[in-house]
């Protein structure tokens, strides 16, 4: 199984239309930490105090320009509830980047984040860039439970990059996604990964006999 992967457009040439590079990104973390809020802040510039729990997973796209290159994020915003946990591989498989989110006011969510990082590092290749985001930093003054230093230390040890964010105020949200995009470009990740992906998709075509119109758009 390939994981949910957008098929390459344009007759399988592998070059996405519009010159933008597609980038699969997944948001993981405990329920209620603000994954959807981060995604919606990034994509729509919106914030809802009463954001409801995601059901299954939501898919959003957003294009950013980094160093003259357009990066189009295919964002999988997953549900944090336990019953959806077994679906997660479908979303992080084949992803170029993952954001593991925790809530700085909840130590439990930080522990959950650890297990997500562990799972990601075990199940995906070393090429996947993982960001650790401590969300709800706007509530730091009153109810902070996870120290910034602690999280940074953990991130350092595990080769992640760490940011504290607030989907509510927008603090560090653009920064988070921009940094991810830069990391990806710096690794020259886009080019190699795109090539790699063409191969896997072609294999799939053979194996599972996908309908032909997947490869030849009319």
């Amino acid at each position: 199984m390939s994981g949910l992967q957008r098929p390459p457009p344009g007759g399988g040439s592998g070059r996405p239309g519009g010159g933008a590079q597609q980038m699969k990104l997944v948001l993981l973390g405990d329920q209620g930490v603000g994954k959807s809020s981060l995604a919606l802040r990034f994509v729509r510039g919106d914030f809802r105090e009463d954001q409801e729990a995601t059901i299954g997973a939501a898919f959003l796209t957003q294009t950013v320009n980094v160093q003259g290159k357009n990066i189009k994020f295919d964002i999988w915003d997953t549900a944090g509830q336990e019953r959806y946990h077994s679906l997660a591989p479908m979303y992080y498989r084949g992803a170029q980047a993952a954001i593991v989110v925790y809530d700085i006011t909840s130590t439990h969510s930080f522990e959950q984040a650890h297990s997500w990082v562990k799972e990601l590092q075990k199940e995906t290749g070393p090429d996947v860039i993982i960001a650790l985001a401590g969300n709800k930093v706007d509530m730091a003054a009153e109810t902070r439970a996870v120290m910034k230093e602690e999280a940074e230390k953990y991130a350092m040890e595990h080769g992640l990059f760490h940011l504290e964010t607030s989907a509510k105020t927008g603090y560090n949200v653009q920064n988070l996604f921009q940094t991810l995009a830069q990391e990806i470009i710096r690794n020259d990740y886009v080019v190699t990964q795109t090539r790699h992906r063409i191969v896997t998709t072609a294999d799939l075509l053979g194996e599972q006999s996908y309908p032909r119109r997947r490869t030849c758009c009319s």
Partner: peptide, 17 residues
């Protein structure tokens, strides 16, 4: 009922079991 109970389908395409 699923559709009626959920506002979140309005914000993005969803994929749910």
């Amino acid at each position: 009922n699923l559709v009626n109970a959920s506002e979140s389908f309005k914000t993005a395409e969803s994929w749910t079991p």
